[in-house]
């Protein structure tokens, strides 16, 4: 009887602009996915529909989490936004402009940091500047962004000397130095231990409040989604589609153990059918 009241959002809901948060006045960083379908064709002729008819609008400066079991197409959606895949049908736009290929305006951070092992941390972070031939004019940015992620002293170190959390910080700095309008995070903290993960979540929030970037994050972790995002998009597999979108209206900084927090958390788990069995006691004290 609890769940009925909680599941309120209709399917494929496009949110009203009021919920975009305090940054909605910013004009750039709006992602619009319209009736996107992605079908992967395999060489043996078989086809897999990863996404079917997905529409989603993410406002400027908004933090949206994509959550759902594997196969629900959340990573595919992120890769489509990044431009690493092309949609079979439908369109994706950033600030009204069609997304056709990867670009520095849409930064991407994977679960594995994928730092270039042959470059030290300074040069890893500087990679985007060099690739866009703007390094000479913006050299000082590298130190700034290393400082932003707390790696100011590690510029000369090679990636294999860094711990998992530090490497992920470096890869955040590498994506952010291009000053992207959107930062896409594909389970960025999935490989970290619980404590490092919680630290990094706060780090991401701090960076977000400093840089005001639209962020879309794929995650398996319901707590993480509730803790970080303005809205959580719950997706279901076979074929991948948006089940519902849940607003998380709490002010930041958030506490992880308030009743409201736990209520939203269990609501999402219920939608995903992972809430577990709970029998109500026959009597009350």
């Amino acid at each position: 009887m609890v769940s009925e009241a909680l599941i309120s959002a209709p399917l494929n809901q496009v949110p009203p602009s009021e919920i975009l948060g305090p940054d909605s006045e910013r004009a750039s960083g709006v992602i619009e996915a319209e009736r996107v379908t992605k079908i992967f064709s395999h060489p043996d002729g078989s086809e897999v529909t990863a996404l079917k008819n997905v529409s989603l609008k993410v406002g400027a400066g908004e933090f949206v989490s994509l959550i759902g079991p594997s196969g629900c197409g959340k990573s595919t959606l992120l890769r489509l936004v990044a431009g690493l895949e092309r949609a079979t049908e439908g369109s994706l736009r950033l600030d009204g402009k069609l997304i056709e290929r990867p670009d520095a305006e849409r930064g991407l951070v994977f679960q594995n940091p994928y730092l270039f092992p042959w470059l030290n941390i300074h040069n890893n972070v500087a990679f985007g500047l060099r690739a866009r031939s703007v390094y000479k004019l913006n050299k000082e940015l590298v130190a700034q962004y290393l400082d932003l992620v707390g790696l100011a002293k590690f510029g000369r170190v090679y990636p294999h000397h860094l711990s998992g959390g530090m490497a992920q910080r470096a890869s955040l700095a590498r994506a952010l130095i291009n000053q992207p309008r959107v930062l896409l995070l594909d389970e960025p903290l999935g490989a970290l231990d619980a404590f490092t993960r919680m630290n990094m979540q706060d780090e991401i929030l701090r960076i977000r409040s400093e840089k005001r970037i639209t962020m879309i994050m794929v995650t398996h972790d319901v707590d993480e989604a509730v803790y970080l995002s303005d809205r959580t998009v719950v997706m279901t597999p076979g074929p991948g589609r948006v089940e519902t979108i849940i607003d998380i209206p709490f002010a930041r900084p958030r506490a992880r153990n308030t009743p409201d927090f736990l209520r939203l958390r269990s609501k999402i788990l219920e939608i995903l059918h992972f809430a577990g069995h709970f029998e109500e006691p026959p009597y009350q004290i």
């Binding site: 290929r101 520095a104 991407l108 270039f116 690739a131 994506a175």
Partner: peptide, 29 residues
């Protein structure tokens, strides 16, 4: 070379030629 390195570099703004000489070749060293 893991494709992810090319994907990462393309989202960082690297074009094809840049990817060949500054991602593919160093990774293959």
């Amino acid at each position: 070379v893991q494709n992810a390195y090319f994907e990462v570099s393309s989202t960082l703004g690297a074009k094809r030629l840049y990817q060949i000489f500054l991602v593919g070749i160093p990774a293959a060293m």
